[in-house]
Write a protein that binds this DNA or RNA. Structure first.
Lengths: 138, 138
DNA sequence: CCAAATTATCATATGAAGATGATGATATCC
DNA sequence: GGATATCATCATCTTCATATGATAATTTGG
């Protein structure tokens, strides 16, 4: 469902959300904690920073942190830079034009499901996913 | 959402469903009608035949046809041979174990959406997709 | 200003999906 | 039984996501 890179991005953002109070977290620590290749993660996080999801700082106390509070970052924002054309191709049969006016054979039935998926990514925030874990420490 | 190959498979099966009454359809005709590389489609259809979705015959009047009536072929069956591990990885964050007992941060919310998608492929039949087109010729 | 630690970036490797071209195997028709 | 048309299969090629390794740029602390 998600590309490997998008999954890395999501896991990293959730980790950073859990440590929002701390100083910036180094890529090395993220890579080790989350078991992700360090240099690859470095590039991925750079993309997230350019997308405005993360903020990066260099030098001795440098690292990455969320650019905004976790309740203002949607999963769609985190995943978007690593989907490319996937988000665009909404037609299950790959037709260039597929709309209510000019539907493919699967359009009506697929649209309902497809919109559910989009709504999940678009409306769920990072904070909401952390919530279920935060509740645990009562 | 679907791999290119799975999309080819689905489009071909729908085409064959529209021509169920005819003699077997040649790969060449399928490839041209659906604008799919012929040799590649050939391999893909061979896989569908081994999976029991299509029946193939060789020689002068050979070609491919549905192995069963269209209302007894689910979309999941058509797509399954070309997903490999995709179907297995139900955890959004890629965890090996992710269940109600041992959930990842996204489990509860994602499960609902994920099951919708599975239900769509598992319960929708080829005949149902053809139906909306068949209705048109009243 | 220098050294150390960190992100940023470049160059390249690897593996799998997608695609192409050629050849082998089999069924039909005359 | 031979010619022909078709599926089946083999051998590559290309492209892209993923990954690795090395180097440049920047910030902090002494």
């Amino acid at each position: 469902m998600l590309s490997q890179t998008a999954e890395y991005a999501l896991r990293t953002v959730l980790f950073l959300g859990e440590h929002q109070d701390r100083a910036p977290v180094r890529v090395g620590e993220l890579a080790e904690s989350l078991d992700i290749p360090q240099n690859y993660l470095s590039k991925t996080l750079h993309q997230l920073a350019r997308a405005g999801v993360l903020a990066s700082s260099r030098g001795k106390l440098g690292g990455f942190r969320l650019a905004r509070p976790a309740d203002r970052i949607s999963l769609a924002e985190v995943v978007a830079p690593f989907h490319g054309p996937t988000a665009t191709r909404s037609c299950l049969l790959g037709r260039a034009v597929c709309s209510d006016q000019s539907p493919c054979a699967a359009h009506a039935r697929w649209k309902e499901v497809s919109e559910r998926v989009s709504a999940f990514f678009g409306e769920t925030t990072v904070a909401e996913l952390l919530g279920s874990r935060t509740v645990r420490r009562k």
